[in-house]
Design a protein around this nucleic acid. Structure first.
Lengths: 149, 149
DNA sequence: GCATAAAGTTAAGCCCGCTTAACTAAAAAG
DNA sequence: CTTTTTAGTTAAGCGGGCTTAACTTTATGC
């Protein structure tokens, strides 16, 4: 096993700290909403993709259609999502967030951002500038990888 | 609502992409081990803290002692952790990872790092340098916040 | 057009996490 | 030395997620 480069090390160091911190925030928030993790994850997916069919959900989370259907049911009943018929394929359903669902996601986002704001307050002006550029580069690279996959 | 600064924006953009990507990896890996999320999270906590008492676990995850005890039981039975008596306080138990547990965590880490390596390959030499410095700064800031809390 | 495949739904049943409640054992407080 | 607090365990019971199996409805291939 060869020793990782300084670059790799700092990337990994950041990942360890960041993961730990954001996982905690994530689970805390999900719990505070009263939703289970699977339910909450589906809301996040819908937020990302916009509109999804049932099968898209089951593939994404590697569960059966039956499981997805039942989870969706609960989310509909609690008013976070809407289940509409697809006019082009009447077998299919189109799932999407309701206003209430979007508000929930937004609240979670705000909470996550609070930590970033605190983080920001620890940096000098020059550091902020450099960090901003670096993260833009990383974000861009990540998006490229995403498309490829 | 005032418009966020460019710095804030790039920080948030990165967070969105990074969170989405690493949550997926995280849940996939946990599932692949056959462990439930709560069980897996306890292993992670033990990896972080080294040795924990039962109450530390229940506080950290906001569950009752009873729940923690039962979860620990399963992890002991599957050989990932060890439950020893605390010589200083014979009511207390000391939970820690076994070799098998440490190996599991290590495997997860490796998997997460793979993505970082791919990310790295998209960057030029100068970018790497700048990114490395930036992340060191951020990691440092994050650790400061952690101590304070 | 008819057979086959695809998208979802529903119900039965399993395992799991979690809580409450009742308990044991050891430490701390008085 | 007794009372109270603290650490943890055990068992019963609830609710949730997930799977399989049986089913409905709509699209597709030949």
């Amino acid at each position: 096993m060869t020793k990782p480069s300084p670059f790799t090390q700092s990337l990994r160091g950041w990942m360890d700290v960041f993961m730990h911190r954001s996982m905690r925030g994530w689970t805390r928030f999900a719990k505070s909403t009263g939703l289970s993790m699977p339910q909450f994850s589906i809301l996040m997916q819908l937020h990302h993709k916009g509109i999804c069919g049932m099968s898209e959900i089951s593939e994404r989370f590697d569960i059966t259609n039956a499981a997805a259907s039942q989870l969706a049911d609960k989310l509909v009943q609690s008013g976070y999502i809407e289940r509409a018929e697809d006019p082009n394929d009447r077998r299919a359903k189109m799932l999407q967030l309701t206003l209430k669902g979007r508000e929930l996601i937004e609240a979670g986002r705000t909470e996550r951002y609070r930590w970033l704001d605190e983080l920001q307050s620890k940096l000098t002006a020059e550091e902020k500038l450099k960090v901003a550029e670096s993260l833009k580069v990383l974000t861009e690279a990540a998006k490229q990888l995403e498309e490829k996959a």
